[in-house]
Design a protein around this nucleic acid. Structure first.
Lengths: 144, 144
DNA sequence: TATTGTTATACTCTATAACTATA
DNA sequence: TATAGTTATAGAGTATAACAATA
């Protein structure tokens, strides 16, 4: 590990770090693919933060309003999401997670976490400390 | 950072680490989405390793033979992939990257890397060293 | 007049089934 | 008989355009 990172070394580190994160992500995402489709998982994760309107969800997920409309129809039909009238705006609606929706989210996450846990199970404490520190740095960096 | 990681601490670390990797991946993937669709990018990345038959690509990408057939038709039509007869097997074909295919891969990667570079640009050398060490550990861990 | 949401329609990626050609 | 690949067809997710209802 160099003591000082040149511009070029930073670029190489960025590329390698991105690559390994994407490989981790790809592998983890392959766990429990039957439970929820990716776009469904994303919407449920948004609703976990609190009640949202369809237009909010469409913007947060970068999809069109009609696409979100269909996705929400599927999720409410499956009993994972609940729909209420918006008391503030007669055109709109408020979506929220049902207990089944929460359970589905939890099951998918548990599968992905189990995969990651197995990966790091045999690492020495020193490596875990390094990963722990990196996790904190990355969390800051991605939050920007 | 704890000196010893309990079973529970390992599970929590695994979950948090997975989460941050998936966030990094998600953000990086959003760069340059117009250049190549995800399934196209994946196939080009496979072909970067060398010439492949359609059946090999379908297996590697976990898609059906007809799906790969369509994807390859699109890529050859766009001039990103080249098709040759397989001298070993008259039923099959050999696909390889064209220079344009290589360029497309490079452009997408460059966009993603640029995003990551910007994220870590202002970090002190100590943080970069931590990320560097974590990158090496994760690369080992994912390769298994 | 702008915003929210849905319906109508079409395009793409995915799949399975059926078919041709070769091993 | 099994394998490689394509074509036919259908289902799901996405989009834009057009529409209804409300702000």
């Amino acid at each position: 590990m160099p003591e000082h990172y040149s511009q070029q070394a930073r670029r190489r580190l960025a590329a390698d770090l991105r690559g390994v994160c994407m490989r981790v992500s790809r592998r983890a995402r392959f766990e429990n693919t039957d439970e929820l489709a990716p776009h469904q998982f994303s919407v449920l994760a948004q609703l976990e933060k609190g009640t949202r309107r369809p237009v909010d969800l469409a913007r947060a997920e970068s999809v069109s309003a009609p696409s979100m409309s269909r996705t929400l129809a599927g999720l409410t039909g499956a009993g994972l999401v609940e729909r209420q009238d918006d008391p503030q705006d007669g055109r709109s609606a408020l979506l929220s997670l049902t207990p089944q929706g929460r359970d589905a989210l939890r099951r998918v996450r548990r599968s992905r976490d189990a995969w990651m846990s197995e990966r790091i199970a045999d690492l020495p404490d020193a490596d875990l400390a390094t990963l722990d520190a990196a996790r904190a740095i990355l969390a800051e960096v991605v939050a920007r």
